[in-house]
């Protein structure tokens, strides 16, 4: 497997103290990878480190053959990777439509095809396109956030807890959206609090604890692993 996204031995953090220690992971083309771990394990920090939002002290991040370590976020998006943060992932004071337009900021020329695809994926948003994103419900905001990130046609999409705080119905809808996105040829990295559901649905998973790799494997393997089940799945 040639990896689309490779994180090799990343150490780094927000200030002097490292939060991530020697963290590595790999995402192949059209793969859904789940990242699970207890609160504060460094899952979000790992996502931010890929996107240049914190200081990486050592290690490298390679996207599709390009070493992007140390690049500014506004440059990293050009390498074909998009990211939906865990919190504050929409522009609250802008309309749904403007959020999508901002997602397409780097596209020159006509992007109506991308807009159309996003509205097709989230038909509810079509009726809401003039509404301010800040006025939407949590689930609707996740749709805007994911739609925004899809506007650049990324090869890899990072989603940090897209189902946090959502009802089971919305959660299932988001998972279904993830499958649809994968079927268009995009690889997904999914940080999930709902570890069991996520592992059931992902191809592979990584378990993080205290900023380190704890273990990894296929979703099924991790689900069947006694140790993991006891530690993280509340079984």
């Amino acid at each position: 497997m040639t990896a689309l996204l490779t994180m090799s031995s990343i150490s780094g953090g927000y200030g002097d103290a490292d939060i991530l220690h020697d963290l590595s992971m790999e995402v192949g083309a059209r793969e859904i990878v789940a990242i699970i771990g207890p609160n504060g394990a460094g899952k979000s920090t790992a996502m931010k480190s890929i996107f240049g939002l914190l200081t990486i002290r050592s290690g490298t991040i390679v996207v599709d053959g390009t070493d992007i370590t140390g690049w500014a976020p506004s440059r990293i998006v050009r390498s074909g990777i998009c990211y939906v943060p865990q919190v504050a992932n929409v522009f609250y004071d802008m309309t749904v439509h403007e959020n999508f337009e901002m997602g397409a900021f780097l596209r020159n020329g006509d992007y109506s095809d991308a807009l159309e695809r996003v509205y097709e994926m989230f038909p509810d948003m079509k009726a809401k396109q003039k509404a301010l994103a800040g006025s939407l419900s949590g689930g609707q905001r996740q749709m805007v956030a994911i739609g925004r990130a899809l506007m650049l046609d990324p090869k890899v999409l990072l989603l940090d807890e897209p189902t946090a705080g959502l009802s089971p119905k919305y959660m299932e809808q988001i998972f279904q959206t993830c499958r649809d996105i994968r079927n268009t040829g995009v690889a997904l990295v999914l940080v999930e609090q709902h570890a069991k559901q996520a592992l059931r649905f992902a191809d592979r998973g990584y378990v993080l604890a205290a900023g380190r790799n704890r273990c990894d494997g296929t979703g099924v393997d991790l689900l069947n692993n006694r140790f993991i089940a006891e530690m993280f799945l509340g079984a």
């Binding site: 522009f91 004071d93 802008m94 901002m102």
Partner: peptide, 22 residues
């Protein structure tokens, strides 16, 4: 386009840079 980029950055500078806005 750039006016909206200003509003976007005013709203959420990190997210703006994630959209490729310098």
């Amino acid at each position: 386009k750039w006016g909206k980029a200003m509003r976007a950055m005013s709203d959420n500078p990190d997210l703006a840079s994630l959209c490729g806005i310098d």
